[in-house]
Computed example of a mutant assay.
Amino acid sequence: MRAVVMEARGGPEVLKLKEVETPTPGPKEVLLRVKAAGLNHLDIWVRKGVASPKLPLPHVLGADAAGVVEAVGPGVTAFKPGDEVVVNPGISCGLCERCLKGEDNLCPRYEILGEHRWGSYAEGLVVPEANLLPKPQGLSFVEAAAIPLTFLTAWQMVVDKLQVSPGEDVLVMAAGSGVSVAAIQIAKLFGARVIATVGSEEKLRKALELGADEGVNYTHPDWFKEVRRLTGGKGADKVVDHTGALYFEGVIKATANGGRIAIAGASSGYEGTLPFAHVFFRQLSILGSTMASKSRLFPILRHVEAGRLRPVVGQVLPLEAAAEGHRLLEERRVFGKVVLEVA
Rank of each mutant, 00 (worst) to 15 (best):
T243Y: 01
E324L: 14
A207D: 01
S285Q: 14
L204I: 00
Q156F: 11
V72K: 02
S120Q: 04
T150E: 03
V227R: 04
H116C: 05
E7G: 05
K294Y: 05
V142E: 09
L319E: 10
G102K: 11
P221L: 10
Q163D: 15
Y218K: 10
V316P: 01
T150N: 11
A130N: 14
A212D: 06
P275F: 04
G265F: 00
V46I: 11
R98V: 11
A71Y: 01
R310G: 05
R193F: 02
K16H: 13
R9A: 07
L106T: 09
E103F: 15
V316L: 03
Y270I: 12
K80G: 02
L246W: 14
L210P: 12
R302L: 03
A175L: 10
T153C: 12
Q163I: 13
M6N: 03
R193V: 02
G215Y: 10
E129G: 09
A196D: 08
S92W: 06
V87C: 07
I91S: 06
L309I: 06
Y247M: 07
V127H: 05
L132H: 01
V127Y: 04
D241T: 09
V127S: 08
E271K: 10
L230Q: 15
M291P: 08
G26E: 09
V69E: 03
T77P: 01
Q163H: 14
R229E: 15
E143L: 11
V14F: 08
R282A: 06
A8C: 01
W45I: 07
E324S: 07
E249V: 04
I252M: 13
V76F: 06
A192P: 06
A66L: 04
A144H: 05
K16L: 12
V316R: 07
E168Y: 11
Q156V: 07
V342R: 04
L329V: 13
A154F: 00
D213N: 12
R333N: 12
R33I: 10
S267L: 15
F281C: 07
V316F: 04
K188P: 05
R310A: 04
L39M: 11
T243K: 01
E19H: 07
H41G: 08
A183F: 00
R308I: 00
P134I: 00
K253V: 13
T24F: 09
V251F: 11
T273F: 13
K188A: 03
K188D: 01
K48E: 15
V342H: 09
K35R: 14
E324Q: 13
A207W: 04
A8M: 02
L274Q: 07
R308Q: 03
L15A: 05
R310L: 04
T243Q: 04
Q163F: 14
P318H: 05
K101F: 14
D64N: 12
K135W: 00
I91W: 10
R332P: 11
Y121D: 04
G233T: 08
A130W: 12
D83Q: 02
G102S: 12
K234P: 09
K18R: 14
A130S: 13
